[in-house]
Computed example of a mutant assay.
Amino acid sequence: MIRIALAALAFACLTTPAVAEVVERSADHFVLRYESITEGPMEDLPGVVGDMPLWWDPAHTYSGKADNLSISPVLGGCFCERLDDGSVFEHGRVQEWDAETGVLLHAALGPLHGKTNQADWSIGWTGAQPGVRVVMTYVVRGNGLGAYADAVDGVMQTQFYRMIRYLEYGEPA
């Protein structure tokens, strides 16, 4: 039992996610959760979320260019992507943006676009230096969407790792 507790404590001290998983799943919904204890400055977190083009994996954009992403840090602000033809694709909308606690977006990403009843993506933070806890969740509901859980988990897990790495080192990979 002590070995398990020591292993858990050592794992929690790492700056990589201590939790990264599909925490709930049914035929019509899934919930993803990622957590990391980081030494990255808590006051930088709102800016890091806003700097999404600097850490988002460009392979998971429609244009192939993370630089084409933008997020407006205000209620109703657009998480958008400028496409090569000059049009703009709306990935989601900001529902909350609180510099003290986190961000909530309504965002049906990628293949979920147009298929969801709910697609809430949150990035929250608590704690103090050192040891800020960053938790990202993605709650998706819609007919038959539980089948997407593993694929979406793979993409969102990559984005979470890249965001934490950017927070800590100023680079996503």
Rank of each mutant, 00 (worst) to 15 (best):
V19P: 04
V19Q: 12
A20W: 00
E21A: 15
E21G: 12
V22A: 04
V22G: 02
V22C: 02
E24H: 08
R25I: 08
R25K: 14
S26T: 15
S26H: 05
A27N: 12
A27Y: 00
D28L: 04
D28Y: 02
H29M: 10
H29R: 15
F30M: 06
F30L: 05
F30N: 01
V31S: 11
V31F: 03
L32Q: 06
R33E: 04
Y34F: 14
E35V: 13
E35H: 06
S36D: 04
S36R: 08
S36V: 11
I37C: 08
T38N: 07
T38S: 15
E39A: 11
E39D: 12
E39C: 10
G40V: 05
G40Y: 02
P41V: 06
P41H: 13
P41F: 06
M42T: 06
E43N: 13
D44F: 06
D44C: 00
L45V: 10
P46D: 07
G47P: 01
G47N: 09
V48M: 05
V49M: 05
G50P: 01
G50N: 11
G50S: 14
D51F: 07
D51W: 03
M52C: 08
M52H: 05
M52L: 14
P53S: 15
P53T: 15
P53M: 13
L54Q: 13
L54E: 10
L54Y: 08
W55D: 04
A59E: 04
A59H: 09
H60P: 06
T61I: 07
T61A: 01
Y62H: 14
Y62I: 12
S63V: 11
S63H: 02
G64V: 12
G64D: 00
K65A: 05
A66H: 10
A66M: 06
D67E: 13
D67I: 11
N68T: 13
N68E: 00
N68D: 09
L69I: 00
L69S: 04
S70A: 10
I71P: 02
I71Q: 01
S72R: 12
S72H: 06
S72V: 14
S72L: 04
V74D: 04
L75V: 15
L75N: 15
G76Q: 07
G76T: 08
G76E: 07
G76R: 06
G77Y: 07
C78Y: 02
F79K: 10
F79G: 03
F79Y: 11
C80M: 01
C80R: 13
C80T: 09
E81N: 10
E81F: 08
E81I: 12
R82F: 01
R82E: 00
L83V: 14
L83S: 12
L83E: 07
G86M: 05
G86A: 11
S87A: 05
S87V: 07
S87N: 11
S87L: 02
V88T: 11
V88S: 02
F89I: 14
F89Q: 12
F89L: 14
E90S: 15
E90T: 15
H91N: 12
H91F: 08
H91G: 08
H91P: 04
G92Q: 09
R93E: 02
R93Q: 07
